[in-house]
Design a protein around this nucleic acid. Structure first.
Lengths: 230, 230
DNA sequence: CTCTGTGAAAATGTTCACAGCG
DNA sequence: CGCTGTGAACATTTTCACAGAG
């Protein structure tokens, strides 16, 4: 299952899940691709094609059963199980991530927190005691952590990543603005908060301020990060 | 200038800027596309093609002058001026963003902060007094804000976005997990922190655990968000 | 002889348009 | 009918491979 889902489709699945949840909360239990499009701002044809990859779940003439489709998407994303997450770096951003509802709501549970600051080590956050970052690889043993979230400064991110890998972590979500070198077999996903702002800055600068004949057209790159000029 | 730069290239420019800064700090002032590739983890041919869009800046047989190239990329991204940013939502995430070095280092200066919580309104953060979110559109007048960062809960994001637009903001970076409806002409860029984690979860689940014959190949989607299995 | 810049090929992604199911 | 699912057309992006500048 889930064999050949295109990468572009995968990155849109969480958006569909969010849209379906929103529809569901409005007591809409059957939705056409057009309705999901309105809710997610993704083209309806795109939605139909994406959803066809995870199995024919729509009813012609009707649409998609919202709860069933949501369950299937969650299944594809692996969100029907719960994930143990380690958080490395408990600065402002780390603290925000530790409390971030979007993680806990979608079955990601933070089970360990590490920081290099001796003042923070020993403090307890939501029942978890912050441990020393230098102890990551040994401390991870037996904690059954699947995914790590890296929110350290750029300077220490590589060292922390190495320790995580040594401790058995195989998937890392990296918020540090640095390109990590990791051994083969480790999944990595990067989020650089300032990149998005810089891209916005580019488009702000290069606004089409000329009259007719300018190039309309919003460029789509990644569903979650479409540049949209409305 | 900057007329027809492909969207995919634009979203990689900040990564190149970061890589060049890193090279520069190691006293490397001339770099080949291979060196930038090593630093940014983007394919060298891709880099050459991307850089060709912003003008022939490389010297054949040598490579690129790091300071000159960096200046040109910053110019393209509009980072040679300073941007006034308004932050809406001073929860954990908003507070983290207010202090985020990656913003201030790249000429984004937060000049106004809004929150709906009466307890927070009136507090001062880095010299900026938090104002009531209900006053956004009037308060923005005369502040010369270019870009707004939205870090409110999903429920209030649309209302805040409307107020921002009414107040004259034309570019919004949205961290709230909701699809905003905005009038034409407003640039929008979304960052959903949990999407990345869900995508990671998908790939964690669908690891190629079979022997030979499995589909190798890292899928590239967006430079900042390549899914990389190493 | 090295390394850029770029056509051309290949791969991926998006949109259209409609056959056909319920 | 209304709507999905999907071939086929189109668009964009990535990668290759090499001519040619320095």
């Amino acid at each position: 299952m889930g064999k050949n889902i295109p990468a572009a489709t995968v990155s849109r699945l969480p958006i569909y899940a969010r849209a379906l949840l929103a529809l569901s909360s409005r007591d809409i239990f059957v939705a056409s691709s057009e309705m999901i499009a309105a809710e997610s701002q993704i083209n309806a044809a795109q939605i139909r094609k994406d959803l066809s990859h995870i199995g024919g779940l729509g009813a012609r003439g009707l649409g998609y059963e919202v709860p069933r489709l949501l369950a299937q998407i969650n299944e594809e994303l692996g969100l029907n199980r719960s994930w143990n997450v380690a958080l490395v770096g408990y600065g402002k951003l780390g603290a925000a991530l530790a409390e971030y509802k979007g993680f806990s709501e979608r079955s990601f549970a933070i089970k360990a927190i590490y920081d290099a600051d001796p003042v923070k080590v020993g403090q307890t956050v939501r029942g978890i005691t912050i441990e020393d970052a230098s102890l990551i690889s040994t401390s991870l043993a037996g904690k059954d952590i699947d995914i790590a979230v890296l929110a350290t400064p750029a300077e220490t991110a590589q060292k922390a990543a190495n320790a995580l890998v040594a401790g058995g972590v195989r998937s890392i979500l990296n918020f540090a603005p640095v390109a990590l070198e990791l051994p083969k077999g480790i999944s990595l996903r990067n989020v650089d908060l300032s990149i998005e702002l810089q891209v916005l800055s580019f488009y702000h600068n290069n606004r089409t301020n000329s009259a007719a004949g300018s190039d309309r057209k919003a460029e789509l790159l990644d569903a979650s990060n479409a540049y949209a000029e409305r």
